[in-house]
Design a binder for these strands. Structure first.
Lengths: 230, 230
DNA sequence: GTCTATAAAGTGATAGAC
DNA sequence: GTCTATCACTTTATAGAC
């Protein structure tokens, strides 16, 4: 990773933000260096001058987005474990700790919300081998810890079943990030919820899916029926 | 669509199956015409000679895979509606009708199972505008009908909530097709279930997620606990 | 039908002028 | 720092020999 401090303004900043925007819209593969320098009204050599190469620019973007999310996930999972040490943590709290950091809490960029979430989804869909080593380590740690804490919250679910249910959760999670606009363009009344509201819906969906088959007495009381409003 | 009858053997067949295999492994964007003709031990002009262009070859592949799945979905959803006409169909049967056709029942190709499922997942993840018109129509009809029948099975869930839950289901479904090998390489004991077994797990997961928040008395009795074995 | 040669356009990267 | 010109390479597609 060549240089992690990005100036608050200036050509390097503008190139980076333009690249992020295009990566979010089209995916990494569909963005040429010339697309970035063209839209940023710079010259074709600028990306190589400031970032070394197209590859290094992409790795920088991955680092900037995936690392804080992984750190936030780890911190929250740790907090849940500490809070319920010894006791069985509520399933919903565990899922919340892993999913909520996607909403943009750890966001350190000027990208508009919709673009931010699409970019995060695309990054987390990439194969791990294109991640910078440090980022990959944090991401993997968070995923491993998630499954470990999940197992505490669902002691009667077999390891095999748990892995598959986690896999289903992951798929739904990545899909809602990249394709958040799809339900809205369905013509149907999908409303215009914020990402936090969508994640709340998703956490309830995934909690029910992960708990499937367990006796309801094990489920915590819900209090007043949730309204999904924030 | 230039020519839909593909010979049982010969160079055209070999080119098509080689292309399908590479598309499944890498995704459409990452396969060059030269990759196909090279692996199929043909010459670079063969793809254009037999299929017109790279684009047309891709559209042919999309057509061959997505059309039978859409038809199978429509037929099964229709059967469920007919069987329970007037009455409320069981949620699990509705989801089964939409998801099960992905297992390869409607398969009309020689691609090995793993590749078949990855290819189907990649195709169904594409934006609709690259689909042949006929295929797009069937795919959209099946999706619309799915939501319509779902609404009958879940009359107390609001339209907005239903659309989002369906969106979560779609994400998990596409993810498990393209990344079915991921849980297995996790080092953990994910077992080596068939796609039919994975889909059975997924259908139970998604059924619980879609039914979230509803009183359990509404759920049908389950009979003996399912074992996920086929 | 099969193949080679080549056209036309695009890619990432860089040397060197300013 | 900024920019143009250009290199070396890859892409899809096709003309024309066999």
């Amino acid at each position: 990773m060549r240089e992690l401090r990005i100036p608050e303004s200036g050509p390097k900043r503008r190139l980076l933000e333009t690249a992020e925007q295009l990566f979010a819209e089209r995916g990494f593969d569909m963005v040429a260096v010339r697309d970035i320098t063209g839209l940023a009204k710079s010259n074709v050599a600028a990306v190589n001058y400031y970032f070394g190469s197209r590859e290094e620019l992409i790795r920088l973007v991955i680092y900037r987005y995936a690392t804080p999310i992984g750190e936030e996930r780890l911190a929250r999972l740790e907090a849940v474990e500490k809070k319920w040490s010894g006791k069985m943590p509520p399933l919903e709290e565990v899922i919340e700790a892993y999913v909520r950091p996607l909403s943009g809490i750890a966001k350190k960029t000027n990208l508009p919300d919709a673009g931010y979430h699409m970019l995060v989804g695309r990054i987390l869909s990439l194969p791990g081998n294109v991640f910078p080593q440090e980022t990959e380590l944090i991401t993997q740690s968070a995923a491993a810890r998630f499954i470990r804490v999940l197992a505490k919250a669902l002691p009667t679910v077999s390891g095999e079943e748990l892995i598959w249910r986690t896999h289903f959760l992951t798929g739904g999670m990545l899909h809602l990030l990249v394709h958040q606009d799809e339900p809205r363009t369905l013509g149907e009344a999908a409303g215009t919820p914020t990402m936090d509201a969508i994640l709340s819906r998703f956490i309830r969906f995934a909690t029910a899916g992960l708990r499937e088959g367990l006796p309801v007495e094990q489920a915590p009381s819900k209090g007043p029926q949730a309204t999904f409003d924030f």
